[in-house]
Write a protein that binds this DNA or RNA. Structure first.
Lengths: 244, 244
DNA sequence: CGAGACTTTGACCGTAGTCAATTTATGTGG
DNA sequence: CCACATAAATTGACTACGGTCAAAGTCTCG
């Protein structure tokens, strides 16, 4: 089952505490139990519901992609980050009004994790918060200081590394379930310009895109061109992917 | 003493737990004791030293302005946020290399706060972390989706509100100790364009700038023009500024 | 097969960048 | 208090990156 493998690789790579936990079988209920937790499933293109103002919940992505975004009155949208299997976010609703929305990009499964309590792994949670924050800074550099071509490359390189870390890169290629509009809204560019930039990158054979599958040629060279700084790759022997 | 007044307003407004703590006298040592804490003083234009890789410290700004930034190899700089009196940040050094630097914009006094322990006020710390995060998202919208004029206005409006909250706005005017280069590096624009944008805003009498002092005409109208969303203003009676 | 979403193309425009020089603070030592 | 050095702000001329508008082509999926 595809979902199952994705889940294994992703959550186990990011959440060491889960490694030895027993896995239970999926069934086709809306909220199958995994690791004794409840799964919530959402189709693509829906907003994850908030809670009452003032409350907060912490979520782990089990499978699928999501994005954090904000919408302006006039329809402009800024996407802050993309969430991949194994990532965690806390969503909370501020009194001040709309801060961030959480939108499913693909069919998605999430599970809730208590920030505290017997189930919590403080180290894993802190690490995932820091990763997320780090990526926000990376993204700010992209939209603030990189050219269009650099932005696209840099983002693709981040996806490559993050997906690689959870075993979703095969033969240097990965599935990218984003529309060009989403890429544009993330990178602060227009959809037309994203289209032309992608074409140019293909023409210069820096990247290959076929039916939503992307592969990067000579990632090291591209990383240099796009000022891409790979994030911590602890390469601790014990941390190597289990199911790669 | 100017610094003293600034400190009172800023820290007391943000750190309710400090309100009734006794204040000790400043002296002219490098690290005068305030609230039984040590103060570190830095001149303008210096980088706050990091610690060893892997460690972290949490800092409160007592007086002065700082900024968080990252530098690219080729000299491009992105400023992520500005820190004002009463703000807190945690700085840590990642194994991966340069993530953020912390640079003093003016003469600055900071004090360290334990994240945990008898001195810590968890609520105040969590609130300041959330404020900071919220501002990062606001800033991402600025550089990703606003025009130059909107970016400048929006940032000035944020400064207005934040400085107002700590009693540093007098008669609608506040001191802005930033060079146009810093504004440019924060907003993802060139210094020349910032200059021209400021001139245009002055010409349209939306803002007034004289010797580093800024005042905004009709903030509400400007907020609308610049898609500025004021952040939580709890306006809880007990939370009103004490020394305003 | 048709509807709608997504991608691609062309023509044109305009915001913002670059380069280089000048003017105006800001400061510092004499 | 002035002279000079330096940083910061300003200006002009020109460029180019990226946006907008509108139409046509593709792909998906029921």
């Amino acid at each position: 089952m595809a979902v199952r493998g994705e889940f294994d690789a992703a959550v186990q790579a990011r959440m060491p505490a889960f490694r030895d936990a027993g896995m239970q079988e999926f069934d086709d209920l809306r909220r199958p139990a995994v690791f004794g937790r409840l799964l919530e499933r959402y189709p693509a293109g829906v907003t994850i519901p908030d809670l009452a103002v003032g409350t907060a919940r912490r979520i782990i992505v089990v499978s699928g992609w999501l994005c954090e975004f904000r919408m302006l009155r006039d329809g402009r949208r800024q996407i802050f980050s993309f969430l991949l299997p194994g990532d965690a976010v806390s969503i909370r609703t501020l009194a001040g009004g709309a801060s961030r929305g959480l939108l499913t990009v693909t069919h998605t499964e999430i599970t809730e994790t208590p920030a505290l309590g017997p189930d919590a792994d403080p180290d894993a949670i802190i690490e995932s918060i820091q990763d997320h924050e780090e990526r926000l800074f990376d993204h700010m550099v992209r939209i603030g200081r990189l050219t269009a071509k650099e932005r696209v490359l840099n983002l693709l390189l981040e996806f490559h590394d993050r997906l690689d870390a959870i075993g979703l890169v095969k033969d240097g290629a990965f599935r990218l379930p984003l529309t060009q509009e989403m890429i544009a809204d993330a990178l602060g560019l227009s959809i037309v310009h994203i289209n032309r930039t992608l074409q140019e990158l293909r023409r210069e054979s820096m990247i290959m895109v076929r039916r939503g599958v992307v592969s990067l040629h000579q990632p090291d060279k591209l990383a240099f061109l796009a000022s891409y700084q790979p994030r911590r790759r602890p390469s601790t022997p014990g941390e190597a992917p289990l199911l790669a």
